[in-house]
Amino acid sequence: MAAVPQKTIHKYLRHNKKFPHVWCPGCSNGIVLGTIIRAIDDLKLERDDIAMVSGIGCSSRMPVYVDFNTLHTLHGRAIPFATGIKMFKPHMKVIVITGDGDATAIGGNHFIHAARRNIDLTVILINNNIYGMTGGQYSPTTPHDDVATTMPYGNIDNPFNICDLAIGAGATFVSRTTAYHAIEAQNMIKKAIAHEGFSLVEVISACPVIYGKLNKKGNAPKMMNQMKDNSIPLAAVNKLPKEKVEGKIIRGILKEVDRPEYTKAYQDLVDKLNNK
């Protein structure tokens, strides 16, 4: 009997459980989920050792679909919940799925403090420049002048550069890519998971149904093409003239350094106190 070809993701999805998923057609969240699964499969990690923790938002709905230890928490609080798991079971690989609002508005404080501690969490931040779940209010990454349901006359706020924020706070692995660059994302996520310390992968994403519509960005394929056209790899930055770099999304590993990891430092303290 000929074997039915299986896709990697099918090994990991809770297919008999809560499908269909909640995401709109054309949403980038599914693409990001696929890259995460393939990265984990490449790394040959034990599913039992993986915890996937999220906050609240469209992006944060991800954990329920995958067959790991999964935890869907409160808006903004995924990182401290994840911290508790990692601290108590340091052998686990703890992956945080969060949105731009979840991680940098309501959860901004937790985000910078986890980076400061350099606790070994892999934060995959899906940045769609808007509050998707609640229907299109502006987020800390909505570009200036863009329209949101709570900025009907154009955004007067200024957006965060999330990677700069993470670097400033002390994260030891900081990277950025887009949902269009799925293979790049997969490789970055692999590196981020393997990295010992606080790691961030910011994935610029498309929310065609809300953000795209409000800002006349076109349909999902158009928004994917915009990610391709509006981003440049880090390696190209120095080679290009200034005007070609300005306003572009810079993709790549922006920081990768070694610094003592928090749960290890804690274990050292325990060992010292017990004269091991």
């Binding site: 903004g76 401290p80 919940f81 508790g84 601290m87 108590f88 804690y266 325990v270």
Partner: peptide, 24 residues
């Protein structure tokens, strides 16, 4: 051999203990 963490605020404090409790 237990774990102590001073968190950044009380919201994180309740979150971190729930996370730890779920881990056992």
């Amino acid at each position: 051999g237990g774990k102590f963490m001073q968190m950044e605020d009380e919201i994180a404090s309740i979150a971190v203990i729930i996370g730890a409790s779920l881990a056992g």
